[in-house]
Design a protein around this nucleic acid. Structure first.
Lengths: 224, 224
DNA sequence: CCCCTTTGTCACCGATTTATAACCGGTGAT
DNA sequence: ATCACCGGTTATAAATCGGTGACAAAGGGG
């Protein structure tokens, strides 16, 4: 699940990003309206957290532009006492809003409630290079081959690697993302999981072309 | 469209009632928790506006009781700065909340947004492929076969799958949409319901052609 | 009240998925 | 050379998942 966070307040942006990352979501960030729209185009997030007050283009304009091409859930951020803003935001198609300041816990609760209600059928398949991941169906397609079914853990691992395609992801981060905890004994789990995943997605699992080992560091997904 | 307004503050109750009536909705009112539950039973409203602080039974208890038997949209009313309340309310299954004081215009905007999300304004497509669902009659027709009668739960499940025809719907989402709550123990209910539905709509229930399992992910309705 | 339908609960099976352990070969440090 | 460590592989045990049948509880007319 990928989310776009658009806010000009750097600290708040990082806080929200951190909160969502900890909760297991992938996060992309933007500091102003135009950047938010570019990121939206480039990343096709599954949910957007959008500050109303931003330089460049206001949250309203961004929201309107997003609604022109997608029904992705949008949460607007606003300061207290600006009820006119809220009405306008909701009329423009925003799905929910939060008044600043808010607690991370509240944000998460709202996001979860929204995702629960939001249909979620517009979750675009995550892809890089020849690898296309369909989260809903729990499948990957390599090139034009038949889609391969993945288990829950395989899906999470591949999602994590795909989100950082071309870059090495450390074993610690993978452990946290896939199992939610880290301790040295669990490296064995990762070994196993990588092995099983390679059986499914590599042409020759003995000489991995896609899921390569970065010795001593972690793993990476190679894209051309 | 009938709505239940439950609040112990008589003035606020009347204001909300007036606002909703003006907007063209039918309104029934209750001044405390037990009355709210009685009205809910007697009137079967399509949406509930529920104050958290009420004598007799708190809004939490009322919300919980409502969720035990219905998935009707619920909006909770609360005072500012009680974030714990909000989280608890949303976790109990409330769909939205408003912090007092709020403007009538805000209330209406939120209600409309909620109805829009609940799919109560634009009726979902009732047919896909060879499957045609008649919600009023509680029947499905597969191809040119005789219509088959469905139970309430079977209808909801099939409606949900039909709305996402061709795409996998996760078990969690199905649990929420059909029963209104999610709880890992309740997966058994879904198993049974799917089993019973297959008996009714599949030519050979042992090898499902329509209602297929996406192992580890959920179920999907296959359309050609 | 009884009868019938619907819904929830339980137990069990087979298959899949995940966890645990042992072993192998390569590498780098001492 | 020896040893510790790392990553890959194989094998096996444990847990989970989905399907099924049987049956009990709840609900709804007549």
């Amino acid at each position: 699940m990928k989310m776009l966070v658009a806010d000009d307040d750097r600290d708040l942006r990082e806080l929200i990003g951190f909160t969502l990352t900890q909760a297991g979501y992938l996060v992309v960030k933007a500091g102003d309206g135009p950047a938010a729209l570019r990121m939206f185009e480039a990343e096709s997030p599954d949910l957007v957290v959008l500050d109303i007050n931003m330089p460049g283009a206001s949250g309203f304009q961004v929201c309107e532009a997003i609604r022109k091409r997608s029904r992705v859930p949008v949460i607007m951020l606003t300061v207290r006492g600006e009820e006119e803003d809220l009405v306008r935001a909701l009329e423009l198609g925003a799905d929910d809003y939060l008044t600043k300041p808010f607690s991370p816990r509240t944000l998460l609760a709202r996001i979860k409630a929204l995702l629960r209600r939001a249909g979620m059928e517009n979750s675009a398949p995550l892809a890089a290079g020849r690898v296309a991941l369909d989260i809903d169906e729990h499948t990957v397609r390599i090139g034009t081959a038949e889609p391969v079914r993945l288990t829950k853990l395989e899906l999470r691992l591949l999602q994590m690697l795909l989100a950082n395609a071309g870059h090495t992801v450390s074993t610690d981060r993978l452990l946290i993302q896939v199992w939610g905890h880290r301790n040295s004994a669990d490296r064995q789990l990762l070994k196993q999981l990588v092995h099983r995943l390679r059986q499914k997605i590599e042409v020759d699992p003995a000489t991995p072309q896609l899921l390569q080992t970065a010795s001593g560091a972690g793993y990476k997904l190679v894209v051309e």
